[in-house]
Lab assay of single mutants.
Amino acid sequence: EMEYEEITLERGNSGLGFSIAGGTDNPHIGDDPSIFITKIIPGGAAAQDGRLRVNDSILFVNEVDVREVTHSAAVEALKEAGSIVRLYVMRRKP
């Protein structure tokens, strides 16, 4: 069973403070093209906020749908998102 969360982060000097993997051209798990959080960087915006978790998958960055995009398109969406970034994420319920 999945749960969904909308997380708004303010981009810090060091960016959003997380790493991603995945994409249609580089699936992270099997042939699932989802964009997954692979690392939360200590002291970064995501770590300070505390809600984003490793293995969360990002569905939307602001209004941009990143469910079926290449890795570089997801990176671009995050880069272009401005200083306030709304992430709509999905994760397995614990």
Results as ranks from 00 to 15, higher is better:
2 M>Q: 02
2 M>E: 02
3 E>M: 11
4 Y>M: 09
4 Y>A: 02
5 E>G: 03
5 E>W: 05
5 E>V: 15
6 E>S: 09
6 E>I: 03
6 E>A: 07
7 I>D: 00
7 I>C: 08
7 I>P: 00
7 I>T: 04
8 T>W: 03
8 T>Y: 02
10 E>G: 03
10 E>K: 04
10 E>R: 08
11 R>H: 05
12 G>T: 06
12 G>K: 08
14 S>K: 06
14 S>C: 04
15 G>E: 08
15 G>R: 15
15 G>A: 11
15 G>D: 11
16 L>D: 13
17 G>Y: 02
17 G>D: 15
17 G>Q: 12
18 F>I: 09
18 F>W: 02
19 S>P: 01
20 I>C: 11
20 I>T: 06
22 G>L: 05
23 G>S: 03
23 G>C: 02
24 T>D: 04
24 T>K: 04
24 T>R: 14
24 T>P: 14
25 D>I: 05
26 N>K: 12
27 P>L: 05
27 P>M: 03
27 P>Y: 04
27 P>V: 07
28 H>A: 05
28 H>E: 06
29 I>Y: 13
29 I>R: 10
29 I>D: 14
30 G>M: 09
31 D>V: 09
31 D>K: 05
31 D>N: 07
31 D>F: 05
32 D>L: 08
32 D>F: 09
34 S>V: 10
35 I>W: 02
35 I>A: 08
35 I>D: 00
37 I>S: 02
38 T>V: 07
38 T>P: 02
39 K>S: 09
39 K>D: 09
41 I>Q: 09
41 I>K: 03
42 P>N: 15
42 P>G: 12
44 G>C: 01
44 G>I: 06
44 G>E: 07
44 G>V: 06
44 G>W: 12
45 A>I: 02
45 A>S: 14
46 A>K: 01
47 A>W: 06
47 A>S: 12
47 A>I: 10
47 A>P: 02
47 A>G: 09
47 A>Y: 14
47 A>Q: 11
47 A>C: 11
48 Q>T: 10
48 Q>S: 08
48 Q>V: 09
49 D>S: 05
50 G>Y: 04
50 G>K: 14
51 R>Q: 15
52 L>T: 02
53 R>W: 03
54 V>S: 13
54 V>Q: 06
54 V>C: 07
55 N>I: 11
56 D>K: 00
56 D>T: 04
56 D>L: 00
56 D>G: 00
57 S>F: 07
57 S>A: 13
57 S>D: 06
58 I>V: 08
59 L>F: 10
60 F>I: 08
60 F>Q: 14
60 F>E: 11
60 F>R: 15
61 V>G: 00
61 V>Y: 01
61 V>A: 11
62 N>M: 03
63 E>G: 08
63 E>M: 06
64 V>I: 07
64 V>A: 08
64 V>S: 11
64 V>M: 05
64 V>P: 00
64 V>H: 09
64 V>K: 14
65 D>K: 15
65 D>F: 05
66 V>C: 08
66 V>P: 00
66 V>T: 05
67 R>W: 05
67 R>I: 03
67 R>N: 15
67 R>K: 14
68 E>W: 04
68 E>I: 15
68 E>T: 09
68 E>M: 13
69 V>M: 09
69 V>E: 15
70 T>V: 06
70 T>P: 12
71 H>Q: 03
71 H>M: 13
72 S>H: 07
72 S>P: 08
73 A>W: 14
74 A>Q: 01
74 A>M: 09
74 A>C: 09
75 V>I: 14
76 E>T: 07
76 E>W: 12
76 E>V: 14
77 A>T: 02
77 A>I: 07
77 A>K: 10
78 L>A: 02
78 L>H: 03
79 K>V: 01
79 K>P: 01
79 K>Y: 01
80 E>C: 13
81 A>Y: 06
82 G>M: 03
82 G>T: 15
82 G>Q: 13
82 G>P: 04
83 S>D: 13
83 S>T: 07
83 S>N: 15
83 S>R: 08
84 I>K: 06
85 V>M: 09
85 V>K: 03
85 V>A: 13
85 V>C: 13
86 R>P: 05
87 L>D: 01
88 Y>H: 06
89 V>W: 01
89 V>F: 12
89 V>D: 00
89 V>M: 04
89 V>G: 01
89 V>N: 05
90 M>T: 14
91 R>T: 03
91 R>L: 14
93 K>C: 06
94 P>S: 03
